[in-house]
Every structure is written in structure tokens, then in C-alpha cells.
Design a protein around this nucleic acid. Structure first.
Lengths: 157, 157
DNA sequence: ACCTAAAGGTTGTCTAGGTCAACGTTATTC
DNA sequence: GAATAACGTTGACCTAGACAACCTTTAGGT
């Protein structure tokens, strides 16, 4: 599609963007579900991203998860409960604030996430083997920039 | 993050990819919902993508929508029924196959989609005004390539 | 110190939207 | 002409986010 990379109307681009994102969502839904099951057979897909985030950032309170994932705190609460039920995260009272809790991933979960990390590498080697690391990195950067643009209500111009 | 675009492990890249895609999904969910409402106040977000696709490709049968969107035919059937109830698509028997129907968007829907197209442009001008058309096009191309890679079971390598 | 407001979480209810399976109808194939 | 398969609809079920009500704890104003 880089034939007329010159002056396709931006509206057309955004239409394609919508279509691609739509497709991406549907494909990723399946892939993430697989990966979640690899961590734990009963781990729900949406909770997998939550778990991965907590694993990356360390002990964190639910409120900041709400802020980061921009979904309802009720949903976060239930997903955390689910992760706790599976023994994948632990919740401790926040010493600095009696209302809050800190959640962190269990050693068990860390181990499992490590294994999945290995699977992830083999996956990407299969699917994106022809992408150079630079290309992949550039793509992720653009994705991040795009996300940021969508987030800033008054960005652009 | 292009500081060490040199040799970040691919696993790290894919982890970031997951995070970014997760964020993208959540943001787009909202944006597409807005756009759907702009077409018709009762139009559901998932049906919007369906509608846009039918508008682009012309009369199609449900089975090819199933194939394109890769979701259950039951879900497609219900979404089409929803679009018909709203008067946005029309269903006619397929002259070539008595089992099948052809769906196409109504004139009304085409008009509304046109209006939304205008809104889309103002949206993109606000949010992605600093992106050159070439940059945007390249991003969409990479997204499409990524989608394709995820789709081909034996791609890459 | 006290009362009020606000923030952290949990839970119930509602809805969207997907899967899976069963079914009726029409085509195709042998 | 019967068996098989494809198109589509429908029902039961499930995930998961939105919204609101609620309890607890903290923070602020007086």
C-alpha cells in the first residue's frame, strides 16, 4: 500500500487505521488468551495484561492500575481478586495509607511469566522473524506515540 | 525509547508491544464508540466496523464477513440484524445462492458515514496534526503488516 | 477536636459482545 | 433421491467493562 504514499486523504488513512486496529484487536484477543493460559490455565486474558504490568512495575496500588489501564475500578478490583484466587498476586495493606493495598506478583507467577517469556520469543521468531529488531522497535515506538496522541485531549496541531 | 534501538531483546520489545497494544485497544474502544454514536445514536461500536466494511466493499454475504472479521457467524448474524433494525443496512436474497443473503448499506447510512468522515478528519487534525501523511501511512502499513504476520500461522523465519 | 468531603476498594446490576452447539433451509454430490 | 455440506438464525452461556451504592480511611476547614 505504499504505492501512493504521497497524498492519500487523511480520512482514508484513518479509515484504514480503524480497520487494521479492528483486526488487530480480534487477533490479539486470541493470542493473549493463549498466552494467559500458558501462565495459568484459568487465567483470563484481560487479567494477563494486568499481571504483566504488575510484574514490570512492582508493588502498586489498585488506584494506579485504574489510572494506567483506564478501566473501571470495579473491573480492576475483580480482576485482582481473580489473580489472587489463582495465587498469582499478593495483596498487602499499604503502610502509608490505611485505605489502600499494595499488590505484587507471587514468586510462582514470576516463574511462570518467565516461561511464557521464552514462548513469546519463539512466537515472535516464527511470526516476525523477517522483521529486524530496528523495524520492530520503530513500530512499537510509533504505536506508543499514537497511543499518546489519542490520550492527550488537546494534542497535535 | 529510541535511545538503545540497537539491541533490546526481542522479548522486551514484544512485552512493550503487548502493553502498547493493550492501551491501544482500550483507547480505540472509546473512540470507535464515539464514532459509532455519531453515525447513529444506537449503533454499537462493534457493528460500526462491520458497517464501515460493508460500505467499503459493497454488497457482501454474511459468510465473507465471518471470514474477514474472524468472529463467530452467530455474532455476525446478530450484528447484521442490529444494523437492519436501525435501517443502516439492507438484506436481499442472493440470486446466485438461495441459502445466502447479500447485505449492503442503505443510502441513509452512506450519508451518515460521510458526515462522520468529516468528523474523522477534524479528529485526526486535532490529535495527529503533527504527523505527516507519510508517517501516518507508514504506521498504518506497519500495522497491516503486523496483522498479516499474526494471521499467517507459518509466516516469518 | 469535629464534621464534612474526598479517595481507596468492594460488590451488585446491567449491557455488549463473543463462543459453542443445535437447528431449518438450500445446494451439491454420488 | 438420499447424504453431506454450506448459509444463516437462534438459544444458552460467559467474559468483561460501565455505573452506582456502599463502607472505610484520610484530609481539610472551622
Amino acid at each position: 500500500m505504499s504505492l501512493h504514499a504521497d497524498a492519500p486523504a487523511r480520512t482514508d488513512l484513518l479509515l484504514r487505521l480503524e480497520q487494521e486496529v479492528g483486526g488487530l484487536v480480534r487477533r490479539l484477543r486470541r493470542i493473549i488468551a493463549e498466552r494467559a493460559r500458558a501462565v495459568h490455565p484459568e487465567l483470563q486474558s484481560s487479567s494477563y495484561l494486568l499481571l504483566a504490568h504488575v510484574a514490570e512495575t512492582g508493588p502498586v496500588r489498585a488506584a494506579s492500575l485504574v489510572c494506567h489501564f483506564q478501566i473501571d475500578k470495579g473491573a480492576i478490583s475483580r480482576q485482582l481478586q481473580h489473580l489472587i484466587d489463582l495465587g498469582l498476586v499478593e495483596r498487602t495493606p499499604d503502610p502509608a495509607d490505611g485505605r489502600a493495598h499494595l499488590v505484587s506478583v507471587s514468586d510462582d507467577a514470576l516463574r511462570r511469566l518467565d516461561e511464557v517469556s521464552r514462548q513469546r520469543r519463539s512466537f515472535i521468531d516464527e511470526r516476525l522473524g523477517s522483521w529486524s529488531p530496528a523495524r520492530l522497535a520503530a513500530f512499537v515506538d510509533e504505536l506508543a506515540a499514537y497511543n499518546l496522541a489519542l490520550d492527550e485531549p488537546d494534542a497535535g496541531a
